[in-house]
Amino acid sequence: MLGLFKALGTTLSVIVRKPVTLQYPAVHKELPHRTRGFPVLLWDFEVLEPFCTGCQVCARYCPSECMSVTMKDNPLHADGKSKRRKIVDKFYLDYGRCMRCNICVEVCNFDAIVLNNSWSGHEVSRYDRRDLVNDLEALLAKSKEGSLTNPFREPLGMAHSGWSPKPRGEKAEAE
């Protein structure tokens, strides 16, 4: 009988502790800076074009082969507005296949792709799985509207960027 009362005592002692749960859909947990959501492309606000040049290195290294990319000549380069000779033409990324392994971010030479570390990178459920295939417009939307202020993009083996999220505006300096 002693063991039973000890067990009851344990449950009683836990009753007085603070709850650790959050009411999820109403309250969103603050996500850490390094959170890996689904990948999105970044928008270059200086030239008003995507950073991506369509070099396909991410598509080649993707273990689940969820991307397909094509490249075209950059019309802005001909006008002398942009330094990029080539630019991405079509970019399809299937969120249904992506496993958020961060490899595309690591191999990208132009820092064009990041994993969305906000809640919008997690809550992407759709009623039809075909809607999970994102085109270039959809992938750039988050960056274009300016909600992607603080992406995590450290090179392999580099020093950390602090426990708390970086202050706003630092992304502009880094680029």
């Binding site: 390094r34 961060n102 450290e154 392999l156 083996g157 580099m158 950390h160 602090g162 426990w163």
Partner: peptide, 15 residues
């Protein structure tokens, strides 16, 4: 996917 061949992907956070 944090361990890498030869080390770690990034350093651990400060605290």
């Amino acid at each position: 996917s944090y361990f890498r061949v030869g080390g770690l992907a990034w350093d651990v956070p400060e605290n």
